[in-house]
Computed example of a mutant assay.
Amino acid sequence: MSRRRYRRKNEGLLDIAVRLDWKVSAGLAAASVFGGAVLVPALLGSSPALRPISTVFTQFAWLVAFVFALIAVIRSTAPPEPAESDQPPAPPSTQDNVWIPSVASGVPPRPPRPESWSLDVLDRVEWKRFEDLCCAFYREKGIRAETTRLGADGGIDIHLFQDDTDPNRATAIVQCKAWNKPVGVKEVRELRGVMAHEKVEKAFFMAPNGYTDDARAFATENRITLLDGKLFLAMLQRLPEEASKRLLEFATAGDWTTPTCPSCGDRMTARDSKRGAFWGCVTYPKCHAKLGMRAKPAAAI
């Protein structure tokens, strides 16, 4: 059971009053007044022995009524909470740098399916499909490659296995970042730390929009191969024609530009807010994941 569900299950009347509409608090206040002014005296007030207890319960009921009435006043005067469609994008995070196809607002049109590889195609491929494309590329090269599960990947998106003497030992790791900006040295340093933890001597970083100069310098000193969009495009084009075509069909099949939810793996949908358009999970409110979105449409293929 999730922590959120656990809290909901065990929250009290005060928590409910604060979270729900002001009318709930007003109703609880009225119920407390009735209990303190009518119910408690009727049940306990007739007995001299119980009359002191009745007085205590009555005073407590009035106190509770005052608290709920105060909450009702505050809730009734506060501005309404915005709906999901009005929620601003989540604060920037590593995942928010994922490349997202550009739309102005609303549901983005699906781009035409390309007939050949280009840098524009690599830019448009949503982040999860890009990871799967990278894995499929290594398999086309005859290398056993396995992607990690969705969610926290520990800095690894793909494991490569090329040790014939120990088939289950990964010999290299791959990190993929389909960002709309160059990858910095921080991410490359993190990959070096993962190499040490995994006890592998080689690593590959694949990012369509390249790397900063500091990132390139660090990678050169630490046996990390950086593959940007131009280099990866050349590698795709140098494959045998059938293999290259097969990967293109795989990368652009179905809805290949709408991002995958990084939390639950479902699709995301375009939403609008006062701060602009953003991607939200289609399963909301079950999943609250969000991703940033560019403000202007990208050029057509």
Rank of each mutant, 00 (worst) to 15 (best):
R189S: 05
D157N: 11
R189V: 12
K202W: 10
C176R: 05
K186C: 01
T165H: 04
C176P: 02
K186W: 08
E198R: 15
L160I: 06
P167H: 01
E201H: 01
T165F: 05
K202F: 04
R169D: 00
H197G: 05
A170T: 15
E198G: 04
V200P: 04
F161M: 00
D157F: 04
K186D: 14
P182I: 13
V183P: 00
N168H: 06
F205T: 09
A172D: 13
I173M: 02
E190G: 12
V200A: 08
T165K: 08
L160A: 03
M195Q: 14
A196E: 15
P182S: 11
L191Q: 13
L160V: 02
P182V: 11
E190W: 03
M195V: 01
V185H: 06
D164I: 14
T171W: 07
V188G: 00
N168C: 03
D166M: 07
F204T: 10
A170P: 12
I173R: 05
Q162C: 00
K186F: 13
A196W: 12
V185G: 01
N180G: 11
I173C: 01
E187N: 05
D164A: 15
D164W: 04
M195K: 14
R192H: 12
H197Q: 13
K181M: 09
D164V: 13
A172Q: 08
A170G: 13
G193A: 08
T171N: 04
N168T: 14
E190H: 07
T165V: 07
I158C: 00
A196N: 14
V185M: 09
E187I: 01
Q162T: 13
V174W: 02
T171F: 11
V194T: 11
G184L: 09
L191I: 08
F161Q: 00
L160C: 04
R189P: 07
Q162W: 00
T171H: 05
P167F: 09
E201S: 12
R192W: 12
V200H: 05
N168E: 08
D163W: 03
E201A: 15
M195G: 10
T165E: 10
Q162M: 04
W179A: 07
F205D: 11
V174N: 06
W179E: 07
V185T: 10
E187G: 02
P167Q: 00
R169Q: 12
C176F: 03
A170Q: 14
P167A: 03
K177P: 03
F205P: 02
V174M: 04
T165A: 11
C176I: 05
A170H: 14
Q175I: 00
D166R: 15
V183C: 03
P167V: 07
D157G: 04
V188S: 02
P167W: 03
N180C: 07
V194A: 10
H197V: 10
G184F: 09
D157L: 05
H197D: 13
P182Q: 11
P167I: 09
V194P: 06
Q175A: 12
E198I: 01
T171E: 08
D163I: 11
D163A: 03
D157V: 02
Q175D: 10
E201Y: 05
F204R: 09
R192D: 14
F204N: 09
K199C: 13
V200K: 03
D164P: 02
A178Q: 06
A178E: 04
V188I: 12
I173F: 00
A203C: 05
